[in-house]
Write a protein that binds this DNA or RNA. Structure first.
Length: 876
RNA sequence: GGGCGCGUAGCUCAGCGGGAGAGCACUCGCUUCACACGCGAGGGGUCGCUGGUUCAAUCCCAGCCGCGCCCACCA
């Protein structure tokens, strides 16, 4: 019962301190920093996937003897959190943040953080996350704040952080600058309006087009292409800007595209990124006509001031129409930039902001991936990373918000900025500069949330102090995260990590998929297709959810999650439980000092080898982050090999009267089960830990048991071949019975009509197994099958089941004919291949050999079946 | 416009140079003493299309068709 067991087991782990890395100096370090969730958020299914994969890697590393540290923490998520709290204030009818004032508002956010901040960590615990809570960090805690200040000041001193007045993406809702990455293009319906601007001397007009008529109030030029013959005579002359009345020049610039519209384009340097560059080239005035809320400001004509941008748009169009200068309008569907959080249209806006010289920092971050210091898995994500990094733009890091790291810059009376880690440091610098004490005012702005996130892998380990943790656990081993934050986060951690520590912050980046609903749609609250991980845990258990997420975590970029799949893996957990129960009921308990390499019994030697094989597969898969392969290998081994075959093989021995074979088989079954529990533990920690305790006297918990390292030399090819014959005899025999509708209750003898001496030995040795599993009455060796016995072939041996009384001759004839035809087709194809001279000449010898064997086997089988069919015809 | 990825069984996906696999769904038979969340047996696929490379192509290359995502684009 996972409901009660899971929390109990989690408490046991947590209280015993096993989540903290071992301090054994001999243990190699393995570390990961969690992608810190939003402190006021709650866990969604994407977190569940991300968390599960990290936990699998952590538990795997821990069991392999590493000092495994998975460091948890939360992000203050500046704009997102501020938004939530502002909404709460609005909803509760409280005064807004501006009326509250900065201090009161920030206090309010801290209150909210205290109240909701525990949600995520509780949810992570429910999933079984084995992170070291004693090292939990928060991006706004004192240590990390110190790291942030240190980084900002250092970068500033190095000229990599600077203040600049230029266009930013301005979010009028939050009234802050946002970075390019926080801008989301949305397709919307709009219009192209064609406006005529009269030449200043009244000798004509020039037509420009725009989708944002209100910006014309800030136009400072009209540009045409220098080679455009239509406009040659106009270059250097002026138009009189309607409504405003300002004369503005007609300039020549390559930016104007003669193919587009009239070939002339209005230039609004303060409100358009392209126009800004044109304005810089031509030293045009930059007139900002908007206020922070995107209303017209005092640079707009009297009578227009205070008007909202969209109202202004309408009014400009009306005005042009009234002036007889509207030359056309056409509808257009186009992409318009929106704030990703606010959802409102953002405006290019001219302000002073702090910038990070990302281009310079990117150089080493690119090199580190190029030379493999950091690898992406799947590797193709490197291309995405390179693409962005090689075209990176300066990063605007200041935000006009209140929730976040206050920028460590103080302004003097003349506006000069003094950047220092402390106010005292800034004051000292100011004193030095001015020659006396001057009043300083700290920058009101805070840093982009991602600025502190960029430091996460080393700031959480104590940087800038030279802590023991930093020395031991940095760089981290693997980062597990989603592709949606490669730019926001991964790239920036690479830049900052390399710049400040000289080492890439992680050796490997595993990019996990995005979870969609069963139909492939993105999960969203509005669509109502959200699967809440906690509800799934309640319904199926954390292990089943975890196994599902791991099993579905291939290299594809999305996962379509359905509850049917989770149900399937819940059944797997039940299967495991029942296998353990079987062992318990049959006295299979771990034996101290048991040596798997020394077992004698064929079935036991076989399962020992298969266990070693599965262990190797799973280990390699986990090493490579091939999570789905690991899950599939484990699933198949447990269900289709251990349960379906091995435990069935054990029954005749364990439930028989002969005591001689029992001890070894019990010990082997228990050992294999124990190994299974270990192999499954990273993925299904709860049920395996529970079964670990239930199936033996344990000194330690499974979570700290050593990972199995089994010799693949235990895979004995002879035993594998022998058991293949036993399996084939049973499986094919069952198929024959089923096809011919032989009742389950019928117990014919099994007659072995052809078997070479070694096969005969194997069949005799495993007779009890065959008798029980094929439900036959006995095993006889007799070259002459009785009349009406049904023949079948398995692994080169021939068998007959005397079930004449149940046979429908037509059905049996059809069965034989179908098999003969199949062999015939095989013979033809293989024969053709072997008749091809270039195949014989160029294909590797073992491939040719394989085909010769195939041909011989098919021919022999076909001959035998034809013989049987002839006998049948003789009867019928 | 630039980039990335995906088209394999009814559905969701593995496989990625030597006769196509899994889970779910479907059909048939089983209350067989671990398990009906089960056991056993089945049906079902010109591996998107067209060329090329190769003794051999689902797998490698090119082109095309279809789908998705990211970046840029408010003349």
């Amino acid at each position: 019962d996972p409901d009660s067991a899971e929390p109990r087991l989690y408490r046991l782990w947590e209280e015993s301190g096993v989540f903290a890395p071992s301090d054994d100096p001999a243990a190699p370090a393995f570390s990961m920093a969690i992608p810190p969730p939003n402190v006021t958020g709650s866990l969604h299914i994407g977190h569940a996937l991300n968390t599960t994969l990290q936990d699998v890697l952590t538990r795997f590393a821990r069991m392999r003897g590493a000092a495994a540290l998975w460091l948890p923490g939360m992000d203050h998520a500046g704009i997102a959190t501020q938004m939530v709290v502002e909404r709460q204030l609005a909803a509760s009818g409280n005064i807004g943040r501006r009326d509250m004032g900065r201090e009161a508002f920030v206090e309010r956010v801290w209150e909210w953080k205290a109240q909701s901040g525990g949600t995520i960590s509780r949810q992570l615990r429910r999933l079984g996350a084995s992170c070291d809570w004693s090292r939990e960090r928060f991006t706004l805690d004192e240590g990390l704040s110190q790291a942030v200040r240190k980084v900002f000041v250092t970068l500033h001193r190095q000229g990599l952080v600077y203040r600049d007045k230029r266009l930013v993406n301005w979010d009028p809702q939050f009234q802050t600058a946002i970075s390019d990455l926080e801008v989301e293009q949305r397709e919307v319906d709009g219009h192209y309006w064609h406006f005529a601007y009269p030449l200043e001397d009244g000798s004509g007009e020039i037509v420009v087009a725009t989708t944002r008529p209100e910006t014309m109030l800030a136009d400072t030029a009209v540009a045409v292409h220098p080679d455009d013959p239509r406009y040659q005579p106009l270059i250097g002359r002026c138009v009189r800007l309607p409504i405003v009345g300002r004369p503005i020049p007609i300039i020549a610039d390559d930016y104007a595209d003669p193919e587009k519209g009239s070939g002339a384009v209005k230039i609004t340097p303060a409100h358009d990124f392209n126009d800004f560059k044109v304005g810089q080239r031509h030293r045009l005035p930059m007139i900002n006509v908007l206020d922070p809320e995107a209303r017209l400001n005092d640079n707009a004509p009297v009578g227009w001031r205070g008007l909202d941008r969209f109202a202004a748009r309408k009014k400009v169009v009306e005005e042009f129409e009234a002036l007889g200068l509207l030359r056309g309008v056409e509808p257009v569907r186009h992409a318009v930039p929106h704030g990703d959080r606010s959802g409102v249209v953002v405006e290019p806006y001219l302000t002073d902001q702090w910038w990070v010289d990302a281009k310079t920092l990117a150089k080493e971050a690119i090199a580190a991936v190029e030379d493999g210091r950091t690898r992406f898995v799947p590797q193709h994500w490197e291309k995405t990373y390179f693409e962005w990094m090689r075209n990176i733009e300066p990063w605007c890091v200041s935000r006009q918000l209140w929730w976040g790291h206050r920028i460590p810059a103080w302004f003097g009376p003349d506006g000069r900025a003094f950047v220092a880690e402390t106010e005292a440091g800034a004051a000292e610098a100011a004193r030095e500069h001015y020659g006396r004490d001057e009043p300083l005012r700290q920058d009101e702005d805070v840093l982009d949330t991602w600025f502190s996130s960029a430091l996460w892998p080393f700031s959480t380990l104590g940087w800038p102090d030279k802590t023991a943790d930093l020395a031991r656990f940095y760089p981290t081993h693997t980062l597990v995260t989603g592709f949606d934050i490669i730019f926001f986060w991964v790239a920036r951690m690479m830049m900052m990590g390399l710049h400040f520590t000289g080492e890439a912050p992680f050796r490997r980046v595993f990019i996990n998929a995005l979870i969609r609903d069963a139909g492939g749609a993105k999960m969203s609250k509005s669509k109502g297709n959200v699967l809440d991980p906690l509800e799934l845990v309640d319904a199926y258990g954390a292990d089943a959810l975890r196994f599902t997420l791991v099993a579905m975590s291939g290299q594809a970029r999305d996962i379509r999650l359905s509850t049917a799949r989770i149900e399937g893996y819940r059944n797997f957990a039940t299967k495991l439980w029942n296998a353990a129960r079987f062992c318990e009921m049959n006295g299979c308990r771990p034996v101290a000092g048991f040596d798997p390499g020394s077992v004698r019994e064929a079935i036991n030697r076989w399962i020992v080898g298969e266990t070693a094989r599965a262990t190797g597969e799973i280990t390699r898969a986990l090493e490579d982050c091939a999570f789905d392969a690991a899950a599939t290998a484990a699933y198949r081994f447990v269900w289709n090999l251990y349960c379906d075959w091995y435990l069935e093989f054990c029954k005749p021995i364990l439930q028989g009267t002969d005591e001689a074979g029992k001890p070894e088989t019990r010990a082997t079954a228990a050992w294999a089960l124990e190994t299974i529990l270990k192999l499954l533990h990273p993925t299904m920690p709860f049920i395996t830990e529970e079964l670990w305790a239930k199936t033996g006297q344990r000194q330690t918990m499974l979570i700290v048991e050593p990972w199995p390292e089994l010799s693949e030399a235990w895979i004995d090819p002879g035993v594998v071949a022998d058991m293949a014959l036993v399996v084939g005899t049973i499986a094919t025999g069952r198929a024959v019975r089923a096809e011919l509708n032989v009742p389950v209750s019928a117990r014919p003898p099994l007659i072995v009509t052809e078997a070479d001496p070694s096969q005969r030995r194997v069949l005799e040795a495993n007779a009890a197994i065959i008798i029980q599993m094929l439900r036959v009455e006995g095993l006889r060796f007799d070259a002459a099958a009785p009349r009406g016995a049904v023949p079948y072939l398995a692994d080169g041996a021939a068998f007959a089941l005397p079930v004449a009384e149940f046979i429908d001759l037509a059905v049996e004839r059809a069965r034989l004919t179908k098999d003969i035809a199949a062999h015939g087709a095989d013979i033809e194809r293989t024969g053709q291949k072997l008749a091809n001279a270039s195949f014989l000449a160029r294909a590797p010898e073992e491939v040719v050999e394989e085909n010769r064997d195939r041909l011989a086997e098919a021919e022999a089988a076909k001959a035998k079946l034809e013989e049987a069919l002839a006998r049948l015809d003789a009867i019928g």
